[in-house]
Design a protein around this nucleic acid. Structure first.
Lengths: 338, 338
DNA sequence: TTGAAAGCGGTACCAC
DNA sequence: GTGGTACCGCTTTCAA
């Protein structure tokens, strides 16, 4: 693999000139430039990005860490990030955490070692404190889909509490009183806030949320099946299920059917995220729209500008611009009861 | 951000010793080692991966290029790659192509510039010739989900023709004669081979495949809806649909229902890939299982070993080990007719 | 316009 | 064991 020196030699010029040509720099004679370009092509020269990075003291591409590649929400995030990267003609380097604290940490560490300046990280398993440290150390690090008060200006998050409230409100307005909730194990803040939102909203009505109505499991289709299984086995009565996400909602629906319960006739179900999935199934799922793609785009832009210019002088309130609002999408999985 | 020299100075040792400690090298006194380690921790030193790479003449992580992050099949690929990367304690750098020739090319180029030695690329839009050139230039480059005869030892692919045949065979055996096919636009080889498989198999029966039975569109849920719309609008008669993938099959199902046609009573539908989606919907989709995750794992292992040792001395036939076999999964979207 | 040379942050060989 | 130092591939002054 030829180096810049090989090219220089072959072209009878100095490495400096070759470098100038590579970077479209000024101060190179037209014919010299042409000649060098030709040689570069002939010898199939490819600049060594590592060597470049070491000199430029930075890495222009944008690094992203995703907690879990298998979550369909991921695709939307990645897509959003990709969009703005493409606009700016930047490459993205994705490092996955595989939903486990150590590998999430590892992923960030590696990106840092490669000196990526703009980092978008979607961490599910790393604790606040560690993240705060990272954020303080790396100006271009932005947290996607996570809220940490101390560094809220570096977070892009969804108002999960409102999301929970929306679900609760809708279902109560439709006359439901016995409301089961399927949450998710783990330290995810999303879960906690959504649950808080649900409880808070329920309390505004004469509907009490009892702990036995809560079932926790995996954030998947199978998780939904199991949760319903458990609910039924425990003999709890419910006319509605509020699920942590669409996959769970659909798994739940399927298991309900398996037990001869029809949705929404016997049980109403509400999902969360509004993935394409929600529209594919019968009945179409009533769910909460999660503007994750927009959020991802925003996070990317923010990371990019922070990495270039640590002082953005944001006048507007951070909360207004960094907090995104979920919205209820009514479809056909909820029925009014009396 | 401290460098190795800063650490050396602070510890009162030479950069060489620090380097040894960082790389767990031998020939460092126990106390010296401890001292250096302490300073490294105190100063929060992080090795510069770019500088390391430039010296080691290589990049240990594995680079992957995926044609399209929004395809759910992607998640499975990524997951497979991730699995083996984790086993080997390697990081993966993913660069997405966003389903467009130029960016796929770009993605490969960038990975090459960073001198990644092991590359797994899933390219949908780049032509054979270009890919062959890349493969010849880069020993550790493996093509996932693609077959190119000239470099078949560097490809991991699905027997798409067989997949098509499986679909055709199944549907004909169930008594269907009027069989519509929904394919996909673009240069994807998968489409072509599957279609060939379908036609070839159909020809073994007294069932003729007419070109008007073919509808091409996007490989998505919406694509399936549109395709059925068109089929119906064109007035073609069919009792079965063979879809390029599950998403299309589900979109088609939905549109059929919208037109008062029930699956499988009025129309039978067969999908492809056997994603989780296929089991979520009603009726559960009869489809072709695509062992893409296994394939991805294999491709990764292959890339890794090729990058280390260009001569593997594979005794077994390449085709046996690189060609994967799709299998029919019967569920409830196909009905026998007479 | 061009080239020489000093780094960038490491690694590794060679002395001691 | 430890340190000195040339060098990896490239960028960027500074002179010429």
């Amino acid at each position: 693999m030829p180096t810049i020196k090989d090219i220089a030699k072959a072209a009878g010029v100095s490495p400096a000139s070759v470098s100038r040509v590579i970077n479209n720099g000024p101060k190179v004679g037209a014919k010299t430039r042409e000649k060098i370009k030709r040689i570069i092509r002939e010898m199939e020269y490819q600049p060594n990005a590592n060597a470049q990075a070491i000199n430029m003291q930075n890495n222009a591409s944008i690094g992203i860490v995703l907690a879990d590649l298998t979550d369909p929400l991921f695709a939307k995030m990645a897509h959003g990030i990709e969009k703005v990267a493409a606009e700016q003609n930047l490459q993205i380097f994705l490092n996955s955490g595989a939903f486990d604290r150590a590998s999430e940490l590892d992923a960030i560490e590696v990106l840092l070692e490669h000196r990526y300046q703009a980092l978008v990280v979607h961490s599910a398993m790393i604790d606040d404190k560690t993240l705060i440290d990272f954020a303080r150390k790396v100006p271009g690090l932005v947290l996607l889909n996570r809220y940490i008060k101390e560094i809220e200006d570096r977070c892009i998050w969804l108002d999960d509490k409102l999301g929970g409230a929306l679900m609760a409100d809708h279902i109560v307005e439709k006359g439901h009183q016995k409301i089961a909730v399927i949450g998710v194990d783990g330290i995810l803040n999303n879960t906690r806030y959504r649950l808080e939102g649900i409880k808070a909203q329920l309390n505004k009505y004469p509907v009490q949320f009892e702990v036995e109505m809560l079932e926790q499991g995996a954030a998947t289709y199978e998780g939904g099946e199991v949760a319903v299984q458990n609910l039924l086995a425990r003999g709890v009565e419910f006319s509605a299920i509020l699920a942590y996400n669409d996959a769970i909602a659909i798994g739940a629906t399927s298991m309900l059917k398996a037990h001869g319960l029809s949705v929404p006739k016997d049980v109403s179900v509400v999902g969360f995220n509004d993935l394409i999935l929600a529209q594919c199934i019968k009945p179409k799922l009533t769910t909460i729209h999660n503007p994750i793609e927009e959020m991802a785009m925003k996070a990317t832009k923010l990371a990019l500008s922070l990495s270039k210019n640590s002082d953005l002088g944001e006048i507007e309130s951070v909360a207004d611009k960094h907090k995104y609002v979920p919205v209820l999408v009514q479809r056909h999985s909820v029925q009014e009861i009396s």
